[in-house]
Amino acid sequence: MSLDLPDVVLQTVLLLLLAPLVSGCVKNWKAKLQNRRGPPVWQVYADLLKFFRKDVVISEHASWVFSCAPYVVFVAALLAGLLVPMATARAPLSLFGDVLALVGLLALGRFFLALGGLDPGSAFGGMGSSREMTIAAVAEPALMLAIFTVAIAAGSTDLSRIVQFAQSPDWKWFNPTHVMAFAALFIVLLAETGRIPVDNPATHLELTMIHEAMLLEYSGRYLALMKWGASIKQLVLMTLLVNIFFPVGLAAAGPRAVALGVLIYAAKLLALAAAVVIVETTNAKLRLFRVPDLLSAAFSLGTLALLSTFLFQ
């Protein structure tokens, strides 16, 4: 139970570098599916770099909260990422927090993101904050139920232990519990990362945007941190999904194993990204007040998953 500093650094770098790539892939593939050429997968890196170099314009109504928020959002997402096992079966900071801490950190980021949206006093920002917090509130029970299901099976909320349990022979691949919990978490993933049936990440259409509305007043390096933080958060949630439910190829130790683990992990991640792309392309955005219906379906799936844990012995 000691801190492994190289692990921490490695995973931090991996999180920082991989997150924009995943976002870029999703954007590119989505365009391809819609018969457009789309931006190259590296575009997100270029965007971030450009944002960093630009001057910052801050609203004159905004207070110190506005400038603090991007740092909190970014660091909270990064920290949450260090609590998840990515390529290896042990999360580098698993001593510091379990899956509940991860959910808490993501909520912390969201809290400050919403405050940042309110601070400049623009109606768009307020609207975005209001919707973001509402959707998060209805998504949270579904998320927790799905997590509980897995945690109860593993007897622990420690993500490393959950993943190790998933690798053990006790794990059943075709267990309906996992299928339903996965489906619930997938819906939550779509909601939390602002994907299409819930929010449209590509739009700046005033009345439908949620996440973009909160970022409207951000510019320069603040915008870069916000966008980067959002893509890290997306990566963290996707990692959670693939590594809890498909714990193949998580490396134990040794550089070769780790390298292989990274490759397998990337493959799983891209497969999940492809699933997200397909959902995004084949569905239309829901009206705001239909979103709770979707999330209540996720909640029911979570409940069913939980029921199944002790009824399908």
Partner: peptide, 21 residues
């Protein structure tokens, strides 16, 4: 991490105040 990034890329970026959009 963000501070280093800021030092690396945003060293010359300026900050100015403007009205909200």
């Amino acid at each position: 991490a963000p501070l280093v990034l800021r030092g690396l890329f945003a060293a010359r970026a300026k900050t100015r105040l403007a009205p909200t959009w």
